[in-house]
Amino acid sequence: MKKVSLEMGSGGRLMQEFINEKLLPLFKNPYLKVLHDSALLPDSLALTTDSYTVDPIFFPGGDIGTLSVNGTVNDLVVSGARPEYLSLALIIEEGLEMEILEKILASIKRTASRNRVKIVTGDTKVVPRGQADKIYINTAGIGHLVGRPRPEKIKPGDRLLVTGPVGEHGLAIMLARNNFRMSSRVRSDCGPLLFLLPLWKKGVLWMRDITRGGLATVLSELAGKIGFPVLVEEEAIPVSRALKGAIEILGIDPLYLACEGRALIVVKESEAKRVLNILKKQAPSRQAAIIGEVQDRIGRKGEALLRTSSGGLRLLEPLTSELLPRIC
């Protein structure tokens, strides 16, 4: 008997398979078919939803509350929408200390006002001890479009940008969960991407927040979507120093580690420098960088490639099943 495996929800290939083979045929409609981070509805509305099950619920740089607001806000932003209203559903395990719940609610309130969104409806369920792990949160968000992703316009020469160092959320969670006998300065990058909204008017063709599966998975998705190969330079991808040390010891690839406050942006070649300068002037994206470009000379259709610091070329596959902690 086939059973649901953890990997099916890991953001990797098995999840793609599940969506494409089970969900899409069942709920078939023109809004779902697009499979963007949000559904683009009539009257320039965008709608998105996400559930948060991160373990541990508090981690360096954030908690499940900040994550549940930022994650949904970011999904709207990268779809071209200004987030306006959020719903909030809590599934709480019996016995959770009230003080912890209040702390999470305070995080939610703080993060919502920072993002200028209102929480306008919600739901609270408590399940018997052991039937959930402390607390799970679902949020849905709605907003009006101020821009529109145009992946069909992407062509060779267009530049790829990341808004900051990659992998910090994934590593912070791994370290918080596991006893690696390690201690690190790495903190989650969990944060809002609201500051990217004005860029939709500055030659940005596509954005995606880099979450589960990391930068490599997003790049591979992009390459699959646009019909051209993409090539990024390892040397150009920002990675913080503390993260560099930790990944060496753990033997993990930073390009597959999740972020919760970074995006990959595709910009018209002619506008790339200008967009980069705008990003660099803002605190959350001070370390933004142009990391590569859409290709027509190197690679095959649909391939995401990395030029390593040693000068070799390597394929970036989407994340495959591995032992991954629950990170969002």
Binding site: F180, S183, S184, R185, R241, A242, G245, E248, I249
Partner: peptide, 28 residues
């Protein structure tokens, strides 16, 4: 499993253990 870059010893305990630093991440 043979992965291992060099790290710098930053502390030693009397029980034969200590901490090794890798660019700001330390390991026991």
């Amino acid at each position: 499993m043979c992965l291992a870059v060099p790290g710098k010893v930053v502390s030693l305990e009397s029980n034969g253990t200590g901490k090794v630093d890798y660019l700001g991440t330390t390991v026991l």
